[in-house]
Amino acid sequence: MAVRDHLRTLRLAAWLGWQIESNWARPALFLLYSFIRPIATTLILVIMYLIIKQDVSSDPAFFSYVYLGATFYMFVSSVVFGITYVIHADREHYQTLRNIYISPVSLYVYIIGRATGKVALAALAVVISMAFGILVLGLPFDPMLVDWPLFAIAMLLGLACLVSLGLALAGISMLTAKHSTSINEGVGGLVYLLCGAVFPITVLPAWGQAIGLMIPVTYWLELIRRSLYPGEGIAMLGGLQDFGDLTILSFLLASTLVFAALSLAMFHLADRNARRKGKLDMITTY
């Protein structure tokens, strides 16, 4: 299929995804709904921090570590779970998955397109959460000190990695009943726990640290923190202080490539099995 066809599928699927996401309410109300949930998730961690540490200024480096991890983890929730939920919504809610299958488009590209709106929303939520952190909670931040090229490369690779993970989970969702939300929650919990999103992975037992070092999200979040807060402070917390930025970037690139290959293989295998077992139009709304 020509690249032009894929781009058209991507554009139209993104438009469809955005309409499904947003056209049930007025734009202002929709934006309010979109941001309250992720900000509340971050605030849970902030309250827990303040209960124990009393004040942001008591350990600003650790607070920045936690806040950045929690904020940028919104991308994991939105992108990965947004992709996975497409299968459930199209199969069981709109019951259009079989129609998509028989249309002359790539399902793979269609699913990525459907998730594009989620990426845009997550990006906005991150910006708002950062602004809230800086203005209300006193999160230390100086845009002149930010390593913007490193930040841009890390974001690009990180998003590629998250899309890959989402597609792998979307493949699994094709084979299971209405549990895609549980799959999301479970995998989200696993990644959240092991990648050092809100605490250094050194807190984990040795086997947990070893697994954490195999997850690309660990490197992605470390690079995001280092690019936004260059210097010794935050880099010393995460358990990756022995590695330079370029080394971590190469780890992220390599692990993203491996994840992308694995997710492609998983998606195709699941797709094949779902068709053989007649699960493409399964409805499990008991």
């Binding site: 961690l45 827990m48 921090y49 209960i51 124990i52 540490k53 650790f62 936690v66 549990h179 549980s182 799959i183 929650e185 479970g186 995998v187 989200g188 919990g189 696993l190 959240y192 726990l193 999103a197 809100v198 605490f199 250094p200 807190v203 984990l204």
Partner: peptide
């Protein structure tokens, strides 16, 4: 999905409290 995986989210908050020295 409902028995084993939710425990992971709980574990994350527990390790977070441990990192804070709670």
């Amino acid at each position: 999905f409902d028995v084993l995986l939710p425990l992971l989210g709980v574990a994350a908050y527990i390790f977070y409290y441990r990192a804070l020295g709670a």
